[in-house]
């Protein structure tokens, strides 16, 4: 009985999480989706490396770091554009996006060079 109640609790938890998340603004959802995409891309590459080995290692690193770095930058973007985040209240979302784009450019410039 305890098991089913635990399942129910979990279901209730997910229910509340989903309903709470549904209230999130669409632009933040897009960013979340983007973060998931980036993380999954990186994970798939890690899996590939685990299967066939790390050669060419710099290509692998650049691929994974591209994914992780993008995800981190996207999270930063999300922090800055979140209206509820009082810390960045004065920061316009356009400025935040410009920062994101610039950082991405720098990141990928490095990654392209690292690609080998």
């Amino acid at each position: 009985m305890g098991k089913s109640s635990a399942t129910k609790d979990a279901q209730a938890l997910f229910q509340s999480l989903r309903s709470a998340y549904a209230a999130t603004p669409t632009n933040l959802k897009i960013i979340d989706l983007y973060v998931m995409f980036a993380v999954f891309t990186a994970v798939i590459q890690v899996v590939y490396m685990a299967i066939v080995g790390s050669f060419p290692f710099n290509s692998f690193l650049s691929g994974v770091l591209s994914g992780v770095g993008t995800a981190v930058l996207a999270v930063c973007l999300r922090i800055q554009v979140n209206k509820e985040n009082k810390e960045f209240k004065d920061l316009p979302p356009e400025r935040a996006f410009a920062d994101f784009v610039l950082c991405n450019l720098v990141l990928h410039l490095v990654i392209m060079n690292f690609l080998g």
Binding site: K29, L33, F37, A38, T41, I44
Partner: peptide, 19 residues
């Protein structure tokens, strides 16, 4: 794995449409 790596991209695009 090339195909696999495209899956998150597709999922991302589908997600965008859904949103």
């Amino acid at each position: 794995f090339l195909g696999l790596i495209l899956v998150p991209l597709l999922a991302f695009l589908v997600g965008l449409l859904r949103l």
